[in-house]
Amino acid sequence: LGAMGLGSVAIIAMSSWLNAAALAGSAAVEQHLAETVQDYQGALERTHEIALSAQGLERDVARVRQSFEDLSEQEAAGSLSGLAGRGAVFRVLRQKSAELAGLEAQIATQTPLVNDAFAEGNQILSRMRALTVEPGPVQARSVEFSEQAVRLAGLITRLRQLSVAPLVERAAQDLAASVVLPELDGSNEEQRGAQGATITSVLEVLAQRAATLERAAQDVQAMPPAADTTYTPISSADAVILYARNFVPSWAGAIAIDLLPAVLVMILAITQGAIRSGREGAAVEDTLTLAELRAALAAVRDVDVAMQESPAHRRPTAEAAPLPDESVREDAPGHVTPIKST
């Protein structure tokens, strides 16, 4: 009984799984496609957010560049070293402002690429969403959906590579490390000493600005990246298990289909039991049906005909009468024993 019960449960489970796949298989696969689209959309938006944060470093670079340009203007007016003109200090400041201007221009060239990649990604997502609800066989739509998913995955990878945060970090490290010091052009030792002290102060400020810029780039790179998303084709039978919680009515119908024969057997058993209980205590003539009555009458007629045609039941003749000197004795009801006379 235990083995039969376990086997019945296993059969019902497998059959209900197949029935659920037949009832809700296409809907489950479409649910899988919709979930995949949401994952890809989250990955695209997160990657675009990180790329925009990296593009925001352009403002930090511009601020540092503008500070060095302002210092160079002050040096040209003689406010820093006390020597007006475009001397050694002015050239150092202009040197660094030019490097930062080049970095700023390089970052600016990435902005259209980032925007175009994000727009293309949204177009691919729109097509993928349309594939999840289009009419027709879901398997055919899954093939095109897989192609679009591959395109979108490549675009997300390209969008990650467009981030300028690593570039800004390396440029900030080189900003203070690679300084070409010009020859001091003061007319006397006192002026050259003032220029040297001013250049030392400029290098200290340069190191501070570079450290600030490097930390900003590191903060962008420390942002949690988007989770890797990969579309995996799935069959309808596996989809109804993966998304079983969304198809509870279909599972109930699938199990009900398997249990329907058992319900029918139970109904018949209860009905037959009720019929038998209703016949208990009733006489035969009360429960005799018309068909049974006809069959009984036909049987009686057959018995009568057979008895009339049987030689053992014919009337005895005079020659077969018993001898006068013999008599009979009845020993028991229905049994007669002949007795000879003395």
Rank of each mutant, 00 (worst) to 15 (best):
T289W: 05
Q123E: 13
T212Q: 14
S327C: 05
V29T: 06
I270T: 13
V61D: 07
I339N: 02
A299D: 12
L6H: 13
P233L: 08
A119L: 11
H313F: 15
L297H: 09
V92I: 12
G102W: 02
G25I: 03
S67W: 05
R46C: 01
Q74D: 14
L83C: 06
V303D: 15
P137I: 00
A295L: 10
M128L: 10
R91H: 08
I12E: 05
L242W: 07
R91L: 11
P182D: 04
E147Q: 15
D325Q: 10
R215E: 13
R215W: 03
I156G: 08
I124W: 04
V29C: 05
R279C: 08
T36G: 09
V263T: 11
S178T: 12
A3K: 09
S16C: 00
A98V: 01
N188M: 05
L44P: 08
A176G: 10
P333M: 10
T287W: 06
I107L: 13
L167Y: 08
K340I: 02
Q66F: 07
E144Y: 00
E147C: 01
E73R: 06
Q308C: 03
E326Y: 08
E189R: 12
G154W: 00
W251C: 08
A256H: 01
L293H: 09
L167W: 03
S142D: 07
P166K: 07
T132P: 08
A318L: 14
D228T: 11
A306E: 11
G56C: 05
V168I: 03
S235R: 05
A226G: 11
E58K: 15
T200C: 00
S277Y: 10
G121I: 00
T342Y: 10
I11D: 09
I124K: 11
R151C: 01
K340Y: 06
G273E: 04
E190G: 06
P135V: 01
L259C: 04
V305L: 14
G121A: 02
